[in-house]
């Protein structure tokens, strides 16, 4: 019991440090938000008429507005970007000896890793909320109202923590910032091939198959369902399962690599 309390306390202390490290460099939150904001704005204009394609509205989730369709996809995309560099901070700590300093302190070593995830969760939610608010300002409409918007933001946070493993794991294994960055790029197609921009019904057959296995699409579909339809238990359930599996696999691998690094 006291061990668990200690772990949470240490995670909180270290999380506070990681969070400050993020927001005290204004470029971090600004650049994380800017690209998705521009994308949301431009794509919503550019592809405005895509909704009139046969099959778009019929594919479900169609309120008839492309902005409504795009916004949830853009939320997931933003979170995707927000955590794309999350492994590099661990590497910096490892290289300059800060990790050793923490390891020589009387704390649970896993709190070091957990302390990285706390701010990722908060940052992911903040980014998701910011995009959602902008979408609403641009004229988007959230069918489930404030509770649904909150659910979207929470889902974004959970997805962020899980997805961060795609950067943290390569970072800890390669121990090289550049390799971490270039490997993160390899995950880009997974986001682009998702249903963020185009409904699955309008995709070629092979891409539809790919999307059956694309966890990001499940997250986006749930967010979109909350945005344009309502509280659909099965869609949300599938997204939670996708996030859970992603989290267990990616953060499990990260944990393994972290233990190996600090053995």
């Amino acid at each position: 019991m006291t061990a668990a309390v200690g772990f949470l306390r240490e995670t909180w202390i270290l999380g506070g440090r990681s969070l400050r490290r993020f927001y005290r460099v204004p470029a971090n939150p600004v650049s994380t938000l800017l690209f998705p904001l521009i994308q949301l704005f431009v794509f919503s204009q550019l592809f405005k008429d895509i909704v009139s394609l046969p099959g778009f509205v019929a594919s479900g989730n169609g309120s008839g507005s492309y902005l409504d369709y795009l916004a949830p996809g853009q939320v997931a995309f933003t979170v995707f970007f927000a955590v794309a560099w999350s492994g590099s901070t661990l590497l910096v700590d490892w290289r300059n000896g800060y990790l050793d300093k923490l390891r020589a302190s009387p704390i649970n070593r896993l709190a070091i890793l957990a302390g990285e995830l706390v701010p990722l969760f908060m940052v992911s939610m903040a980014m998701a909320a910011a995009i959602l608010i902008l979408a609403v300002l641009l004229g988007a409409h959230v069918a489930t109202g404030l509770p649904g918007a909150l659910a979207i933001v929470l889902l974004g946070g959970g997805f962020g923590v899980a997805w961060a493993g795609t950067s943290m794991f390569p970072a800890l294994v390669t121990r090289n910032e550049q390799a971490t960055g270039t490997l993160a790029m390899l995950f880009m197609p997974i986001a682009f091939m998702s249903t963020a921009f185009v409904p699955v019904a309008l995709m070629p057959g092979w891409l539809q198959t790919v999307n059956d296995w694309n966890p990001i699409s499940y997250v986006i579909e749930a967010m979109r369902s909350l945005m344009t339809v309502g509280f659909e238990g099965d869609v949300i359930g599938r997204a939670l399962v996708a996030v859970l599996i992603l989290g267990v696999v990616l953060q499990g691998a990260t944990l393994w690599a972290f233990r190996r690094l600090t053995a």
Partner: peptide, 25 residues
């Protein structure tokens, strides 16, 4: 422990750096 390379958090103030380690202890 003070190692060869200085290990500090650059984005915290001097006071915050000390408080962080003290709180971990």
């Amino acid at each position: 422990l003070a190692m060869q390379t200085v290990a500090l958090e650059n984005m915290l103030t001097g006071r915050e750096n000390l408080e962080l380690i003290g709180r971990l202890h």
